[in-house]
């Protein structure tokens, strides 16, 4: 009986701490790589969690990664990556490695360099700017 009480106590103590524990998160790293068929340098990004590794290589322009931010919305991890698109624009590629792997949730071109993610109803939206500087929220998923 005494042993059983100790076991139950330990279990009760362990449960809340297990619930509080943050799940392992994805780590995003990047590097430069030359395309095999050309001399073009491109950014390659890798999502890593434990032993799982997913690699994303842009096949089309833009090739240069310039921004990477992690966002947590409803316990779901997202990565906002910004790519040097045109002289006056940035392309944001949004990733959710847990659910979508290395396939971008969306690609949106913005005339502003700041951005943010938000959830609107059941949709994830990314903030972009129009040529005139107007703020726009685009559905990402």
């Amino acid at each position: 009986m005494k042993t059983l009480m100790i076991c139950i106590s330990l279990l009760l103590l362990a449960l809340p701490s297990a619930a509080k524990r943050t799940p392992a998160s994805w780590q995003l790293t990047d590097r430069y790589e030359k395309k095999a068929d050309t001399e073009v340098m491109r950014s390659v990004i890798e999502f890593r969690k434990g032993s799982a590794v997913s690699t994303y290589k842009p096949e089309e322009m833009p090739f240069g990664l310039v921004l990477k931010e992690r966002a947590l919305i409803n316990k779901q991890e997202y990565f906002i990556t910004g790519w040097a698109h045109g002289a006056k624009t940035v392309m944001f590629r949004i990733f959710s490695p847990e659910t979508e792997g290395v396939k971008p949730l969306c690609e949106e071109v913005s005339f502003g360099e700041e951005t943010s993610l938000r959830q609107q109803d059941d949709k994830i939206q990314v903030q972009i700017f129009s040529p005139s500087g107007e703020e726009i929220w685009k559905d990402c998923k």
């Binding site: 491109r42 833009p62 240069g64 310039v66 040097a84 002289a87 006056k88």
Partner: peptide, 13 residues
């Protein structure tokens, strides 16, 4: 006029 991100990329790549 260019974005800062493009400037960074031009030097990086």
């Amino acid at each position: 006029q260019v974005t800062k991100t493009t400037a960074r990329d031009t030097f990086a790549r």
